[in-house]
């Protein structure tokens, strides 16, 4: 069993240009995850599946997360001139977080008995640049779950063999699991 840092280092060694990032998780479940760059996600996923000591051969679960834009208030240290003397003071500053959608994959190794490894793919925004590569060519079990994410969150999975709506009807408009979705009546 490898730690997340070790897996990240393996990926960084095998793919020098890829920016793999560890997303911490401070909640009690403590499941930090790896954010894969969308451009090379397919090769990275194949590497995770095919390396003889990693062998993540089973994607047990794929889900989506909606991260809308949010205003967070932070204390920022600024230098101010108070009574002619420059002093450091704390000030509340507002900052807007980036808005994007995520697909989250939970991987296990049936052959070696380890896991889960949580990997994430992130879209550029949540309006018009919604494409991430499909991992169905790597793990066949992702097919219906990626369709469900497409149906409910609106992420376009490039390379998916059959990207249609799954739970809603075909001419339905909108993505019901997004945080800003308002159901009809």
């Amino acid at each position: 069993m490898f730690t997340l840092e070790q897996i990240k280092d393996r990926l960084a060694a095998a793919f020098p240009g890829a920016s793999v990032e560890i997303i911490p998780n401070a909640s009690p479940s403590h499941q930090p995850s790896l954010l894969l760059p969308a451009g090379q996600a397919l090769q990275l996923a194949r590497f995770l599946r095919d390396q003889p000591d990693l062998r993540f051969d089973y994607a047990s679960n794929v889900t989506g997360v909606d991260w809308p834009e949010k205003t967070v208030k932070e204390k920022v240290k600024v230098k101010k001139i108070i009574d002619g003397v420059e002093k450091e003071a704390e000030e509340l500053a507002e900052r807007k977080t980036a808005a994007y959608l995520e697909a989250v994959y939970h991987l296990y190794s049936m052959a070696l008995g380890h896991g889960p490894l949580v990997i994430r793919l992130r879209t550029a925004n949540r309006t018009d640049r919604l494409t991430v590569p499909s991992l169905t060519p790597v793990w066949r079990s992702c097919e219906l779950q990626e369709r469900e994410i497409f149906d409910l969150f609106g992420i376009r999975f490039q390379g998916h063999p059959d990207l249609r709506r799954l739970l809603m009807w075909d001419n339905f408009e909108g993505y019901p699991m997004r945080k800003d979705y308002v159901p009809a009546s």
């Binding site: 009807w169 075909d170 001419n171 339905f172 408009e173 909108g174 009809a184 009546s185």
Partner: peptide, 15 residues
């Protein structure tokens, strides 16, 4: 019938 957001067509009652 399936509409863009909801079912459309006559109903026996209003919810």
């Amino acid at each position: 019938q399936y509409g863009p957001h909801d079912l459309v067509g006559p109903q026996l009652a209003k919810p």
